[in-house]
Write a protein that binds this DNA or RNA. Structure first.
Lengths: 225, 225
DNA sequence: CCTGTCTTTATAAAATCTTTATAGAAGCGG
DNA sequence: CCGCTTCTATAAAGATTTTATAAAGACAGG
């Protein structure tokens, strides 16, 4: 079996060095990022088997990085943090973290927790693509194809389509869509949805006047099929 | 949706009580065992969704119980232990434990770790559909099917049908229906009901003139069957 | 300063809800 | 059985809400 690849996202060089030495001597391949943004880019470029994420990053909150990763990244994410605060732990775990260790941590324990976390996922191939009829979406690569042709979508269009395809067949209410894409402050901006559903339809539907994928459920929301 | 079942294996009654109270108030079903042997029997008899295992049991070593469980049990096992010893932690995790918490633990954190552990295994199929003859309704997805075909209902029609199907067989009075769908200000608008029952019948009944699902109880209300 | 994207505004079209009208069915006392 | 009343069903017009679309303005990144 190929060596498992681990991405470290941490701004402290000495921690990264320590982790690198320990992980490499245990036959892991190590990739490093010093900022959250860099970590997101590296993860998207070549999804690792596991991510070690420091929650206290300078550029973005680690919680935010975690949420953004979890939109498409399914492998284990272990949080490393100096904060032994219960609220932080609960928030991280509920945002999709696989495990949470407080610094300073014992390397032997960390390695055991890495083994435990990877044990569960190893075997099942990272599947980040969803298909529906002639449309396919790769959540990790952020690529949408129609009949195999790559479509050019803006960021918001992509997020909206991803949300639709992750909930194929379900009616998603206006409020839910607005909350997920724009946030809680935008629950009344239904017009945004109309505009973006319109542009999405123009791009993914054969005949935008008679949409087959994005169905409007009048008074409620939209449904993808 | 069914409540997840958690098996507690711990010899300290006060810990079991504490866990039971916390878990049950979070809508888990709790089963308890005070010895490792009893735990193994209970787990084998009816495999729970998750096991909380104390490593310091009197009859057998918790590590041994863990190994015996892991010979066949695939769901998460979270270890609770007073021992904060690295060797114990590593041994437990490498023997198949999903997580390891040292006592005293924070209940909020434990609950979050339980959610994290169960999230991965439960591909929960959202048990929100009701069936009645050839009609099925998915309350979460807001989809109604007749003989497997998706029906197009308006929002009000859907709400009304959902109310009927949630109360299958019961006679629902005009006033109750009006109150639930339109609100207290509409208790006298019986005509609304006639109109909407009419359109619903056209959509869900084989022969709307001889309705088999929505039965009128003259002078009282309607009944769904 | 340009370009692409997002936000906002305006307006027409579509869908849905409400109201009105009318006819039929059911019950009941004489 | 008849006439009366009450309740129900259905169609259809009118009113209202919701949606689609274009396009102008705002804004950020390069």
């Amino acid at each position: 079996m190929n060596r498992a690849e681990i991405l470290i996202i941490d701004d402290e060089p000495q921690i990264r060095k320590l982790l690198q030495i320990n992980l490499e001597s245990n036959n892991y391949k190590v990739v490093q990022a010093s900022t959250g943004k860099e970590g997101l880019i590296l993860a998207a470029g070549h999804p690792p088997d596991l991510i070690l994420l420091d929650i206290g990053l300078p550029d973005k909150s680690g919680h935010q990085i975690l949420q953004e990763l979890r939109e498409w990244y399914a492998n284990p994410i272990i949080i490393l943090s100096v904060r032994d605060n219960e609220d932080d732990i609960i928030a991280a775990l509920d945002n999709g973290a696989t495990d949470y260790l407080t610094k300073p941590f014992r390397t032997g324990e960390l390695l055991a927790r890495i083994r435990s976390a990877t044990r569960r996922t190893s075997g099942d191939p990272q599947h980040t693509t969803l298909d529906c009829g002639n449309i396919s979406i790769d959540l990790a690569a952020r690529i949408v194809k129609r009949d195999g042709e790559i479509l050019k979508l803006t960021s918001t269009e992509f997020n909206l389509l991803a949300l639709f395809m992750k909930n194929e067949g379900k009616v998603l209410t206006h409020q839910y869509l607005l909350k997920e894409i724009w946030g809680y402050g935008y629950l009344t901006e239904t017009q945004y949805l109309r505009v973006f559903v319109g542009t999405l339809r123009k791009k993914i539907e054969e005949n935008p006047n008679n949409p087959l994928h994005i169905i409007t459920e009048s008074g409620v929301g939209y449904r993808f099929q």
